[in-house]
Amino acid sequence: MQVDGLENTGRAQPILTARRAGLVACSVCGKVHAAGSDRCRRCHAPLHSRAPASLQRVWAWWLAGLVAYIPANIYPMLRTATFGHETKNTIVGGVIELMQHGSYFVAGVVFSASVMIPVGKFIAIAYLAISVRYVSALRVHTRQHLYEVVEFIGRWSMIDVFVVAILSALVQFKFVASVHPGVAAVSFALSVAFTMLSAQSFDSRLIWDADEEDQE
């Protein structure tokens, strides 16, 4: 998709893009077709020069992720019962508790995986989606990097859900101690999935399109 090298970037020189050249590449197998072709002749995937309604999908998934993220923080993530004494921990509550116990490292990991990364992702996606429409302060390359980081790191937010799943499976000692996933675990997992879909829906070529329009 990115057709020119970094050394050629810049506002000075306009670059010949595929769209300008009247070409469209199959986003599945990569075969190049002439503009106007509906389907890839090789793999029969639909051909689009730019993903249709990309921004709409980004915003839709983003919003769904945000909706799911609210109960994930309000409701308890873990229900831990020890000797009939049940404690419910929300994500932030758990982090605070860990810090009170002095486990700063674990608290940091949980906080970054469960709070920082999801929140960062929301901000980053929203920023990217807005920046393709309006003038951006960040350079195009930086935004491209930001997009790559967001797409890469999104899946690591699932670490929290994994921890809950593993604990619930392992710690089942009836009365002595037992761990059950709370409502927040489900909504958190949904939230992560929605934001990942949101990031995937974002067509990074839009970043460069915006750049070209600026130049013209």
């Binding site: 309604a53 999908r57 983003w62 919003l63």
Partner: peptide, 20 residues
């Protein structure tokens, strides 16, 4: 007409959350 059907997803999430 420009609206993508994908908007149903956040709508559903919102409705469910509100209902709950």
């Amino acid at each position: 007409r420009n609206l993508s059907p994908i908007w149903l997803v956040p709508l559903a999430a919102l409705v469910i959350a509100l209902a709950i």
